[in-house]
Structure formats: structure tokens, C-alpha cells
Design a protein around this nucleic acid. Sequence first.
DNA 1: CTGTTAGCGCTTTCAA
DNA 2: TTGAAAGCGCTAACAG
Lengths: 336, 336
Amino acid sequence: MVTIADVAKRAGVSKMTVSRVINGSGYISQETRERVEKAIQELDYVPNSLARSLRFKRTRTIGLILTDITNPFFTTLARGVEDAASEHGFSVIFCNTDESAEEESRYVNVLTQKQVDGLLLVPTARTPESITFLENRNLPFVLLDRRVPDFRVDVVRCDSEQGAHDLVYHLLSLGHQRIAALGGSMHITSSTDRIAGYRRALREAGLEHEAHRAVFSSFTIEGGFSAANKALTMQPPPTALFAANNFIAIGAFRALREAGLRVPQDISLVSFDDLPMSVGFDPFLTIIEQPAYEMGHRATQLLLERLSQDGPGEPQDIILPVNLIVRVSSAPPAAG
Amino acid sequence: MVTIADVAKRAGVSKMTVSRVINGSGYISQETRERVEKAIQELDYVPNSLARSLRFKRTRTIGLILTDITNPFFTTLARGVEDAASEHGFSVIFCNTDESAEEESRYVNVLTQKQVDGLLLVPTARTPESITFLENRNLPFVLLDRRVPDFRVDVVRCDSEQGAHDLVYHLLSLGHQRIAALGGSMHITSSTDRIAGYRRALREAGLEHEAHRAVFSSFTIEGGFSAANKALTMQPPPTALFAANNFIAIGAFRALREAGLRVPQDISLVSFDDLPMSVGFDPFLTIIEQPAYEMGHRATQLLLERLSQDGPGEPQDIILPVNLIVRVSSAPPAAG
DNA sequence: CTGTTAGCGCTTTCAA
DNA sequence: TTGAAAGCGCTAACAG
């Protein structure tokens, strides 16, 4: 390995002078600078940022802890993070927790050891431990997509409550009165907020007594499948289903197909989150679209801001607006 | 920051003893070990892996350079990489090049500075520079998804040639004779290999003279759109289109829709790569499915193997089999 | 079983 | 404008 000492020797200067050339700090004569640069070229020298970080106490690296990069929502978010980080010369280490709190703590620990400058975190259902850990270490972090109740920390998320409200309002305006909500975990705020929005829409329509049709499951295809099946057993049956995320919508769609129900003729189906790639083909599902890329980008910017400021700063709860896209999966209820 | 020295002082031992406890190396009396562990607990000590890596000359971190994490094919691949890495206690730094060779060199450089132990790389059209750079530094790397001609290096990829052949053979068996191929860049082997497979299928069917219907563009929706439009101007027009990847298929589908052509009644459309999320809804497209997750997992295993062995080892070209899935977008050509 | 010394590659003092 | 010494946090090598 070529080190700064090798360059120094070759250029006939001290290590310090080489360091100054690399970092563009301090005064250096034009002539020495050129000699050093030549030596760097000739030796094909690349600085060791490990050693550098050890001194600087900054790594220009952030951690990104997601639940599952395979969900296109998080994929797009991750892309926003990487772009924003890269714009500022930061690198991103990424990790998948699969909603497991154990994995989350493990990764938080690993990333701490690696001395990341900050952390972006999609909290699992049981995140407080990690938050306390990070706060004790004064390691800056920003929560993504989900709040964690009882903690005053930076969060960047979408307006789940309003989005769900808008989606359900849309169904109500079509004439639906019996709408079932297929939620995710009841310990994840993006799920509970969406159920809250569902309830508010019903309340505003004077259909409070119909709000019991909310089923919690998980943000997975299986969760959506079973939740939809449960909803279909309700008496009288719902005329529309509101899926709290894209995976749930897929599972629900399967359940409907197996039950021999056509969308939207027999039952309407709407969803929070889009299915990006399918849009090219068959823009089918009426959805709430979340600005996933902006979310990642914005959260990264906030984090980098935190890194460059002194104190912790007033915690921000940044709520991005969402967007209703009406397509063909929602229609007025059947006459019957 | 709590360092090993703080722990040592608190436990009344030397730093070395603490180090031994942490690493489980050397002999330590039960009593001392407990005292040290207690001190670690009390101080909430987390080792600094920067310092550790500086000594060990290993970071237990690998770099993953993709063209675009937003493509579900690469998303799934990335997930395979992260899982395999995590199984072995490795972390992953990820980067998107957007097919730019400049970005690629920049990231290769950054990751080298960060002293990653190895690199996974989806090469862009102009990768040789990066390869030479890595080889000069003896930094182990494995290429993903695409070969780079004239270099004997480790590659993990799918059988593009055979897959394309199978897909076109499928069209031929349906009775199609005029099949256009919509390729990606002519400088990317996954693209050229697929075109080669297309040509072989035609040749085997004695339709060599029809092989001129291959259009190169890029692995993007726009590329697919324009390539399809070009194909549609051919005289006589093709009765089937073969898209060399998922994005191209989407662009082609749009072009067909705008031209008022129905799939598969008026024209058949088949594609390399699936559209994972849309499968839940409307398994529509006849495709070649690639084992993206396995590819990422396998490549990571190979890389980690390289890291733990002494010499460079004989370069491997691992070719994973692909899978034809016939759905409804392919049908016999219209009578006309 | 435990401690001391030296040094990984770099940069922050402080001198010259 | 340049350099020497010290040290970031850790561990290998050698003592004891």
C-alpha cells in the first residue's frame, strides 16, 4: 500500500507537506506543490480515509436503516438518500431490518462502531431502545416515514392521516358507506395514522358507527390477504376496501380474486402507495402517491444540516403532502 | 467518546486486557473478564472500528456499485448482496452510477479511500479503466450482470444469450416470423448477448434474413419507446417484439398503445426481466425471469471467498440459468 | 494470565 | 513556507 510517507519521500518533502497539498490547506510554494502532485500521480496514491477519519472524527458516511429495500417505496426513498448524500460527498451504508427490532439494534450498533456521522432510520415497532442509545451517544439521526410517540426527534414523513382521509373521502363521494380499512401493524404510526384518517373521514360523513371495519395486520402481501378475507366476512359486507399500503393492496387483490369478486364492479379497492413499475402498463389502482424520493432527499439534507451545526437544534417534524390519483379500481357501489 | 483506555482505567487493567476481552483472544481469568465486562457495560462502551480497521487492514465492508437501485431487478439483487454480506458480518456501501463511467470511477475511488475489502460492480459501457485501477491495487472485485470483454475477471451473471433464445423460440413456435428485437446499449454485454440469442433462434429456424430487425437503444423507458417506434416502421411490420429488459418493455408497451395496437391480439410483446410488483395484479407479460436475488447473494459469497483466500484464484464466470414464464402477452400472429 | 512498547496512516500542534 | 513530534483508538509482538 502506498502511504503518505512514500509520497513524501519521493517528492523529497515531509509528510506534512503532502498532507497540505492533498487537503489544500496552508501555504505551499507552487514549485513544491507540483513536485508533490507529480509524486502522487506516479505512485498512484489514494489517501486512506480510515486514518483520516480517525483524526478528524468524521467519516463522511451515514447509515440508512430500512425495513425492506425490496418495497419500491423504500427503493425510491433510498435513491433520494443516496443522491442527496452524494451531492455532499457523503457515502451511504444500507441495512434491512425486516421490521425486526433485534436487527435494528444490531445495525445501530454496527453503524456506531463504524463511526457513521449520522443515521437515517425507518423505525420498527419497538424502536425506543435504539433512540435512547443514539441520544446517549449524541449521534445525530432522523426518523423516516414513521413517528415514534413520546420522543421529540427529527422526523420526515408523509401526511398519512390526511392521505387516508382523502382516499376514504373519495370512496364516500362515490357513494360507498361500508368501507373496510386494511391496516398494517398497530404499533407503526404510518399504519395507525392511516386508520385515524379513515376514521375521521367516516366521522365527518356521519358514519362513525361504520368505523369498526378496521382490521390491523402487517405491511405484507400475506397480511393484506388475511385482512381482506376477514373484512369480507363482515355482515353486511363492505362495498370498498382501503389498503394501508401497496403490499396489503396486492394481498387484498388476491383475496378478492379468489373470492370471485371483480374490481371495481363488485367491490372497490384503493391503496396508500403506488406500484411504480406497473404504472407503465395498467394504471389500475386508485391510490395515494407519496413523494418517496423527496422524503429520502429531504431527510438526508436535514441530517447533514444537523451534522454541520453545533447544538442539537429544535426537533423538526416535516410532513410532506401526498397526492390522490384516481384510476379505475374505485367506482360507485353495485346497486345491490 | 468512551475509549478502550477509559474502560481499562475503570476496570483497573491495561488496554490490552480490555482488547482481549472484546476480541475473545488470549487467556483471561474469569474474574478479570467479569470486571472488564462490567466496566464496558457501565460506560456503555462501543469499540471504534475505524481504529481497529486501521490496524487490521480490513474493514469488513464491501462496496456495491449499481447503475440504478430503482430498477426492481437491481433492488432484488441488492437485497441478495446485503443479506449475504450481513450473514458474514459485512456491511455494504451502495452507489448508483446511472450508467455513467465518470460516476463509476469516482465511486471506485471513494470506496478505495474508504478501504473497502472488496467491490461488487455492475460495469457501465466503459469500465476497463476502473478494472485496471482495481487490479493495480489488488482490490478484489466481482462483476455483476455484465461481462467486460477482454478481461479475465470474476463475473456472476445470467444466461442472457440462452434466455433471449428461449424467448424468441417461444415466439417462433407460436408462428411468428417477423420478430423485432429491442436491445439496450450496444456496449453492454447483457444487451448484446440477448441480441445474439435472438439471432441464434432465428438462424436455427432458418430465418436468418429476418435478423436485421434488431434495434439498439438503452435500458430505459424512453429507449424502449423509441426503439419500438422504429421497429413499427419496418416493412413489412413485425408481428412480435422482444424487449431486452423490463424498462424497454414498458416503453414499448406505451408505443404500442399510442399506435393503437393491442397486445397480444395485434402484436405480441415479450420481455427479459419481470416487473415484480405488478405480478400480484395482472401477470400479463411473457418474460424471462432472472434469479436476481441469487445473483447478488452468489456474487457476494464469491467475493467474500476471494477475500479469505491468499492468491487471486482462477477467475470464474458464473452463469445462472433463467426461466421462461409464458403469460398472456404472447399469442399466435394475427391472420392478416 | 497480564502488561509494555511500538505503530497502523494521517493531521494537529508548535517550531523553525 | 516547511518540518518534527505527538497522538487519534486500537492491537501485534514480545515480556514477564
